[in-house]
Every structure is written in structure tokens, then in C-alpha cells.
Simulated scan of single mutants.
Amino acid sequence: MNPRIALATAGRNLQQLRADPRTIGLIVAVPTLLLTLLSFVYDGSARFTGIAVAMLGILPMLVMFLITSVAMLRERTTGTLERLLTTPLHRADLLAGYGAAFALAALVQAAVLVAVSVWFLDVQTAGPVLWVLVVAVFAAAVGVATGLLASAFARTEFQAVQFMPLFVGPQVFLCGLLAPRDSMPQLLQWISDCLPMTYAVDALRSIAEQQDPSGDVLKDVGVLAAFAVGALVLAALSMPRKTR
């Protein structure tokens, strides 16, 4: 991988994002609006804080998965990817550039989401709010990496969107958001241990409940980082030059 080429690719992707206000709105505004709507649903209930803290890891992961899977597929369907790969650009450079650009977008998304949650929706955590931001960014990075991986197996943008339920459903059901993982059958607990959203939710709950959650959070963040790197490697190995 050539760092200079990867940075140039990231710059190109950021320029494309800047020229697309609808995508910026989807990245930054939609998760905040959804969390705000959830606060009205719970209407001051004490349960809102626990749900909201978990959603700070879930929403960035889901939104970034959707954005990156569609964006990368568009590169193939328009022929841009095929033309780029005739240059010295390698698949690894392309995916690293995409990852860097959307990781920066994820940082902005997470910062806005955390700020609104803490200052406007009164979501309080026992641990430092900075840890919440860190977990949200790494959760979004997993969404970026898995979105790039999913795009390699889709032929149309509609097919890329169809991967969303497959990616979302099992993780939301098994991450501990709807029911404690300890109460699930052993088989489901094992499956849950293999899903990245589980570690994002566990880390955020540690932050919500512990004054010094650094040990647990670092362990979970390390697992999220491993998921992201693994998905990027698989995406680089499986990414076709164009839609088959």
C-alpha cells in the first residue's frame, strides 16, 4: 500500500462527500434525529439513558455501513473503479482511502451525536464522555469496513441495501440491547460473542456504569479495531474491478 496514494484517494472521497449535502445529512443529522425521537418515545423515563448510551454505538455503525456499501458500489457501477485500477492505485490504497475518509466523517458524526446526547438530551454516564466518543468512532469504523466488504458481493445499489437487514438484525437482537445476553441460550451467547455490535454495547454500558471503565473499554475497542481491520483485508481480497 502507498500512503501517498491512499491519502489522495481519501481527499477525493472527502471532496465528493462535501459536494453531496444529502449524504452529509444522512451521516450527521439522521442519527441525531432518531435519538431525539427516541427521547420523546421514552418521555423522561429512566430507561432512556440505558437505551440511548447503547444507541451511540449502534447508530454510527449502521449508518456508516449503509453509506459506504452504496458509495463503493457506485464506483463500480459507474466504471470509476475500473478506470482507477488502471493507474498505480491498488485495491488496498483504494480501501484505505475510503476507510480514512469515512472514518473522518464518522468522527464528526460521533462528536455531534455525543454532544446532542449529553448537552440536550441529558444522557449521563458514570465514566468520562470522551470514552463514549472513542467507542462511537470505532463502532462507526466497523460499519465502514463491513460496508466496504458487503459492497464486494452486491451487483446493484439495491442489493447493497438488502445486506442491511442481514447485517443489522442478528446484531441488534443479540448485542444485549433487547435482552441481557446472560439470559440467552448458550448457542446465542456464542454467536453474540462473534458480532462486533456486542462489544460496542458492552463498552458503552461499562462507561455508563463505571467511573473508571478504561480497562473494559480498551479491551472492547481492541476487538472492534480487529473487526474493522479484518473486514478491510477481506474487502481488499474480494473486491472486483467492476459489477459482474
Rank of each mutant, 00 (worst) to 15 (best):
V161E: 06
V161G: 08
Q162M: 15
Q162N: 12
Q162T: 15
F163Y: 14
F163I: 15
F163V: 15
F163M: 14
F163E: 08
M164I: 14
M164V: 15
P165Y: 11
P165L: 11
P165Q: 08
P165H: 12
P165R: 11
P165F: 12
P165E: 08
P165N: 10
P165K: 13
P165C: 11
L166P: 06
L166F: 15
L166W: 14
F167T: 07
F167Q: 09
F167H: 11
V168H: 09
V168N: 14
V168T: 15
V168Q: 14
G169L: 15
G169W: 05
G169E: 01
P170R: 03
P170H: 05
P170V: 10
P170C: 02
Q171V: 10
Q171I: 09
Q171N: 09
Q171Y: 07
Q171S: 09
V172R: 04
V172Y: 10
V172I: 14
F173A: 13
F173I: 13
L174D: 02
L174M: 10
L174F: 10
L174C: 07
L174P: 00
L174Q: 02
C175G: 11
C175L: 03
C175N: 10
C175S: 14
C175H: 03
G176E: 09
G176M: 03
G176Y: 05
L177N: 02
L178I: 14
L178P: 02
L178D: 03
A179F: 13
P180R: 06
P180T: 10
P180Y: 09
R181F: 00
R181N: 01
R181P: 03
R181W: 02
R181E: 00
D182K: 00
D182E: 14
D182I: 01
D182F: 05
S183P: 00
S183T: 13
S183V: 12
S183I: 08
M184L: 14
M184P: 00
M184C: 01
M184R: 03
P185N: 05
P185M: 04
Q186N: 03
Q186I: 06
Q186V: 09
L187R: 03
L187G: 01
L187K: 01
L188K: 01
L188I: 03
L188C: 00
L188A: 09
Q189C: 05
Q189W: 07
Q189V: 12
W190V: 14
W190T: 12
W190H: 11
W190Q: 12
I191E: 00
I191L: 15
I191K: 01
S192E: 04
S192H: 04
D193I: 00
D193P: 00
D193K: 10
D193E: 12
C194Y: 00
C194T: 11
L195V: 09
L195Q: 06
L195I: 14
P196Y: 04
P196F: 01
P196C: 05
P196R: 02
M197C: 07
M197Y: 04
M197F: 03
M197D: 04
M197Q: 02
T198S: 14
T198R: 08
T198V: 07
T198A: 04
T198L: 05
T198C: 06
Y199I: 08
A200D: 06
A200T: 07
A200N: 05
A200V: 13
A200E: 10
A200F: 12
A200W: 08
V201M: 12
V201T: 10
V201F: 13
V201C: 11
V201R: 08
D202N: 11
A203N: 05
A203K: 02
